[in-house]
Design a protein around this nucleic acid. Sequence first.
DNA 1: TAATCTGACTCAGAAAACTTGAA
DNA 2: GTTCAAGTTTTCTGAGTCAGATT
Length: 601
Amino acid sequence: MDFKQVLSVYADSFNFALQFSTSLQSGKVMKLSPKAEEVATFFAKMLDHEYTTKEIFRKNFFKDWRKEMTNEEKNIITSLSKCDFTQMSQYFKAQTEARKQMSKEEKLKIKEENEKLLKEYGFCVMDNHRERIANFKIEPPGLFRGRGNHPKMGMLKRRIMPEDIIINCSKDAKVPSPPPGHKWKEVRHDNKVTWLVSWTENIQGSIKYIMLNPSSRIKFRINIESERKPSCTAKFRGEKDWQKYETARRLKKCVDKIRNQYREDWKSKEMKVRQRAVALYFIDKLALRAGNEKEEGETADTVGCCSLRVEHITLHPELDGQEYVVEFDFLGKDSIRYYNKVPVEKRVFKNLQLFMENKQPEDDLFDRLNTGILNKHLQDLMEGLTAKVFRTYNASITLQQQLKELTAPDENIPAKILSYNRANRAVAILCNHQRAPPKTFEKSMMNLQTKPKKNLASGVCDAFVYRIGSFSLTLDNIDVGSKPLIIDAKKEQLADARRDLKSAKADAKVMKDAKTKKVVESKKKAVQRLEEQLMKLEVQATDREENKQIALGTSKLNYLDPRITVAWCKKWGVPIEKIYNKTQREKFAWAIDMADEDYEF
DNA sequence: TAATCTGACTCAGAAAACTTGAA
DNA sequence: GTTCAAGTTTTCTGAGTCAGATT
């Protein structure tokens, strides 16, 4: 934690003059007090962002900004729309530009300083091991940016002071000293929790933590039980991660029983049991999140399974030739839209009709159910079973199945990687992990394009239908654009090279000397090389296109048992570095160590 | 009690920072 | 060899899950 840095920024007045006009015609410039000025800079830095055009953002910001103003400022600055932040904004843009233009030496110096900071504050010692801390910097003040339609967007995230900070370390540890003139809120020695530092944030009143890196040894609760048997628990990194996948594997053993159970429960006399059974079916089949209740007006309006409302589903007795189709349309975590049309069993459909009877659109679909009730029931079915285990289980089992299905033994390595990514993608689609298409996507595609073509020679770019479990997902709301074709240029090169080869061969036939034979050989090689390059380009292009709006990272990092991947790599001779980058290899070191090619999830 | 609250942890996409490779 | 933009990795911090405490 570098409070020194933080405090010096605060003390330093930026010496701007916020420009604002009291009327639309006549401009007036006003020098702000340091506090008001600092908050103004937060807004100015975001001026180009869409956030600053949103009414809620502006309203919340202005309200909090006024709290930092002097009385005089309050009297003069009465409307945000009359304030002109462009001077400030330009100042920061110029700074960014200047940073870009710095010399190599200057950049290196900054890099070294950052490394020094990391070395000093970025590590801690736990059980005699030096461990990397994930987020060792205190969050700086700024404007709160919620996701989606957040009622608190634009509010001022206040500066965290040493007086807000709780330090958690062992009794014999040297307690880091607070900056001069300051005190910590508290120093405690709680070895039942994993966090090192915590503070309460002022927007939601929730607690924030500083914790260890995911790659750290035993990212889990140190209980006396496990300390007694270090040989089996403390020996490898990421035990918590391992436990998660082991729970999911236990579910694999009893999932059939659980599925039969909830199918029975669809017929239950008790409404509560029926609702629980239908909800569990969705969680299992669609990998929905549990869906805790949320306080209204405190966060964006998003839902999960248990908190679905009547307005989030539409029932179609028949749709596109299929019977009993449920159309889901709701905002999930991070306000990511979940849209899917799913054919369901008749009994589920009838139950849903029943649950929706005499209800308003804004009423809860499962009014007799919440995550507590659901998880309690799951706990009875299997120790350690909760709603989210189904997501982990279904993600991992899908990867394993897809890899089996998609990997062709005689493919080359790039094609194998494409198969892996497709398997990964199937999971990401199942879990609804979306991303905004990269801003440069269309442009970069255009740069590479001449004209779109439906099929490329190798066939790897043919339309691909994602099959997940028993049903296939159509990408209704995912726009699949035209194919990237830097490839066309490559193809022309290849055609030229083939022509060259042909004429060289013809020459060789006539001349029959060593020199022309050599020419033929080199032309052959050139053709081969181009063919390989073309193949690689096609594979990459396909991968990129299919990935346009799908984020693979989240499932790779949090839902897929890494041992499946490690086993696959070993089996097909794909270097692990092609699938996992350095950080991922660190996080999954335990799996790379222990899984052999026969590993079965 | 059962509902509600709180704390601690995992999971999440955007944006910044860095790397790579083509022109 | 240099420049620049595209691609990849890392950082950041918000948004969930879920268990245990509190009322």
